[in-house]
Each structure stands twice: as C-alpha cells, then as structure tokens.
C-alpha cells in the first residue's frame, strides 16, 4: 500500500503483537505449567516478513515472549542466527509454487540444519509458507521434529485445543488436555 500510495485510515497489526499485548495485560491467560515436567523443547522460525523486512525486531521479540509464556522459558531453544538476521526457510517469494523443487530443498537445508542443531522436537512457524516449507524439509532431509502453527501451542497451553486441531502434534502431545470422550478437560 505504501508502494501504490493507496490512502487508508486503518492500521496493520500482526496477530503476534496482539497475543503479546493480551498476555501482558492479562486478557489472554496462558501458562507453561503443562510443560514443567514434560520439558519438551521448542524452537521458533522467524518469518522474514515480520523480522528483517519490517526493519525492527519488535514483532519477533514479541514472538519469543509469547512462545516462552506458553512452553516455559527453559524449554525454548533459539536458532542461531535468529530474529532479523535469520535465514529464510526457502519457502518464501513464491518458491513453494515456483517449480524449482530441488533447488528449493537445497536452499532449505540451511534452515533444516539450524533446526536440528537446536535439538528441539517442535518448530513453531507463525507463517503458513514457513510451515509448509519446514515440514517438507523434515520429510525430505529426514528430520524428526514436528512443525506447529503458533495458535496450536497457545490453545494447548490454555487447555482448549480440540480433538480435530491436533494434526501437527507428535504422539507425545497428541492427547494432552483431552479427556477420554474426546472433549476438552
């Protein structure tokens, strides 16, 4: 919109900024107690669009705040490099639809190695493109991590993740918070 100088009065916000704001002001009640004993490790993928491309680490720092609040600070392992200096996952710029599959996967190997290096079992990817690419990297390069949308982890930590909303969880978390009837505890 800046590019085309289209006048507008609304403002753009990232849902991640809002999650952080809601957690800070107490509107969104989350905690990481569920992972206190499980100690399952999580890392996070910084989407280029909310890191480097906005020229500040504000949103990617909010992302860390939210993730730590829901999985526990001690269970969060950052990739190196990260935030505005992250590596693109290789799924951006239309690459997932661009047809150069072999090259896209070779590109993504850099991200794959970073993920493996963290030792984390789960990668939180708050961008649909990153999610698809990082999941494909796992299958293609033979990883054993799981790729999650951010909202999945937030709902899991709130105990409100429904039975049908668990596609991307591994067996260790697949039934966490569900009662035997399949409803939510």
């Amino acid at each position: 919109m800046k590019k085309y100088k289209i006048p507008h009065t609304f403002e753009f916000k990232s849902i991640i900024e809002l999650y952080a704001q809601w957690i800070k002001d107490g509107t969104l009640k989350v905690n990481s107690d569920w992972n206190k004993d499980l100690k399952i490790k999580f890392t996070v993928q910084d989407p280029c669009n909310i890191g480097r491309k906005i020229g500040t680490n504000k949103i990617v720092d909010d992302l860390r705040f939210v993730v730590k609040a829901v999985v526990g600070e001690e269970n969060f392992v950052d990739m190196v490099p990260n935030r505005s200096n992250n590596f693109c996952c290789g799924g951006g710029g239309g690459a997932l639809q661009g047809g150069h599959t072999e090259q896209r996967r070779a590109y993504g190997k850099v991200k794959f190695d970073q993920i493996i290096e963290t030792g984390a079992k789960y990668v939180i990817t708050p961008c649909h493109n990153c999610h698809a690419q990082i999941e494909d990297m796992c299958h293609h390069h033979g990883g054993d991590y799981h790729t999650l949308h951010l909202w999945t982890v937030i709902c899991l930590a709130m105990g409100i993740l429904g039975e049908n909303e668990r596609t991307y969880l591994g067996p260790d978390l697949a039934e966490l918070g569900l009662d035997i009837e399949g409803g939510i505890q």
């Binding site: 919109m1 085309y4 289209i6 507008h8 009065t9 609304f10 403002e11 753009f12 916000k13 990232s14 849902i15 809002l18 989407p47 669009n49 909310i50 708050p126 961008c127 649909h128």
Partner: peptide
C-alpha cells in the same frame, strides 16, 4: 495484479466494513 488486489482490499475494509485494524495472522 498486485495493485488491483490491494485497491480492492483497501476499498472493502475502508468503505464497506469500516474496520480500524487489519490483523495479519502470520
């Protein structure tokens, strides 16, 4: 195409829905 999509989107939000905030979900 890019410009067309943006213009249509902005018009809808601004003139039809009159929303104050557009939330990017990613």
């Amino acid at each position: 195409g890019w410009r067309y999509i943006m213009e249509e989107f902005v018009y809808h939000i601004e003139h039809n829905l009159k929303c104050k905030v557009v939330v990017n979900t990613e």
